[in-house]
């Protein structure tokens, strides 16, 4: 889609600050992760912030995976 308009982008696509409210950075098993709280018991991994490529192969923390609060 290409827009040709004098309207500022923020007016056309207002961003929803609430959508990012639940995001936070945590350390899980020593690995820094950006997570989002999905419900009362779980975090969902959004981004792995580690520099160790092996951490990206860990299927417990791959983006999209759920981490229970009880495992923290």
């Amino acid at each position: 889609m290409i827009l040709y308009t004098m309207m500022p982008q923020e007016l056309i696509f207002p961003y929803d600050a609430d959508a990012f409210k639940n995001q936070q950075t945590i350390s899980y098993q020593g690995i820094p992760l950006l997570v989002e709280q999905t419900d009362q018991q779980n975090y969902q991994v959004i981004r792995v912030l580690s520099s160790d490529p092996q951490h990206f192969l860990n299927d417990q923390i791959c983006p999209g995976a759920k981490i229970s609060f009880s495992n923290l």
Binding site: D52, P53, Q54, L57, D59, C62, G64
Partner: peptide
């Protein structure tokens, strides 16, 4: 079941694991 879950989450399966220590890090 975790495999199916994985495919639902990301549309991909996990890649083979290498040895725990990597001597090259990546930023």
């Amino acid at each position: 079941s975790p495999l199916i879950e994985k495919i639902q989450q990301l549309g991909q399966t996990n890649v083979p694991q290498l040895s725990a220590d990597s001597k090259i890090h990546c930023l």
